[in-house]
Design a binder for these strands. Structure first.
Length: 204
DNA sequence: TGAATGATTTACT
DNA sequence: GTAAATCATTCAA
C-alpha cells in the first residue's frame, strides 16, 4: 500500500467534519528506527475559543497553544501530567484555534517497534488505546509540535471507510454543557477504542 | 518568584 | 476504587 500524506484540503474543513473523517485514516510515522502505522479509531474535537475544554478557549494564545492558531494540516502536540504527550491535528482556517485530538489507534505496521517503545507485548490493546499511549508507541513528542503533516515523516494517509459512532468527550466533564456535545468520534466494534476512565482495563 | 494543576496512565489496596 | 507519578505551563503577586 502506498502511504502518501493526505492533502491540506483534508484538514482545511470544520473541526467536527475532520474529527469524523479522520476515523479510519492511517497515522504514519517514519523514523530512523523504522516505520509505524495504525488506523485512527478514536478522535475528539476541541473548538476554541468558545469551547471551555480547549486550551485555546477564550482565544488564549500562548507559547504552548501557538500551533493551534496556525495553518491547518499541522500538528499540535502538548505535554501533560508530567509524563504524557497528546497529538492533535490543526484544522479549519489559520487563526482559528480548532484541533482534533487523536485518542486511539489500531496498530497495523511496526508492532514490534511500538511494543519496544511501550514496554508491553505487541498483542495487547494497551499498546495504543489511549492518547498518551499512542504518542509513546509512535514516538511523538514536543519535537513534533507545529510540524507540517502534509510534508514530512509524520502524516495521515488514506485508509478504508469505517462505521463511526459518536459520544460525549472523555476527561473534560468540567466543561459543563459543552461536554454534553457529542464531539468524540470512534470506530464501531474496534477493540482499540479507549475505555472511559475509572473502569479497570482488563486484558483479553 | 512561587504555587497550582492538567484533553492520563499505571500500580496498588 | 483510589492514589501516585511528575513537570511544563499558567496565573497571581
Amino acid at each position: 500500500m502506498d502511504l502518501e500524506p493526505l492533502p491540506r484540503s483534508f484538514y482545511a474543513r470544520p473541526v467536527l467534519v475532520v474529527a469524523r473523517a479522520a476515523i479510519g485514516q492511517w497515522l504514519v510515522h517514519r523514523t530512523r528506527a523504522g516505520t509505524v502505522a495504525g488506523r485512527i479509531v478514536e478522535t475528539e474535537a476541541y473548538r476554541g475559543p468558545e469551547d471551555r475544554a480547549a486550551h485555546s478557549h477564550g482565544g488564549r494564545r500562548t507559547a504552548r497553544t501557538a500551533s493551534m492558531f496556525g495553518p491547518p494540516g499541522h500538528a499540535y502536540v502538548f505535554f501533560v501530567y508530567g509524563l504524557h504527550h497528546h497529538f492533535n491535528l490543526v484544522t479549519g482556517a489559520e487563526g482559528e484555534p480548532h484541533a482534533v485530538l487523536v485518542r486511539a489507534v489500531e496498530p497495523l505496521l511496526g508492532l514490534e517497534l511500538m511494543a519496544a517503545r511501550r514496554g508491553v507485548p505487541a498483542d495487547r490493546v494497551t499498546l495504543t488505546n489511549g492518547p498518551g499511549k499512542l504518542c509513546q508507541a509512535f514516538a511523538i513528542d514536543r519535537e513534533h509540535d507545529g510540524r507540517d503533516l502534509c510534508a514530512g515523516d509524520l502524516f495521515l494517509a488514506a485508509g478504508a471507510r469505517w462505521p463511526v459512532e459518536r459520544s460525549a468527550r472523555i476527561g473534560v466533564q468540567y466543561a459543563g454543557s459543552w461536554a454534553e456535545r457529542p464531539w468524540r468520534f470512534f470506530a464501531r466494534a474496534n477493540r482499540y477504542v479507549s475505555r472511559p476512565r475509572g473502569g479497570t482495563l482488563r486484558q483479553p
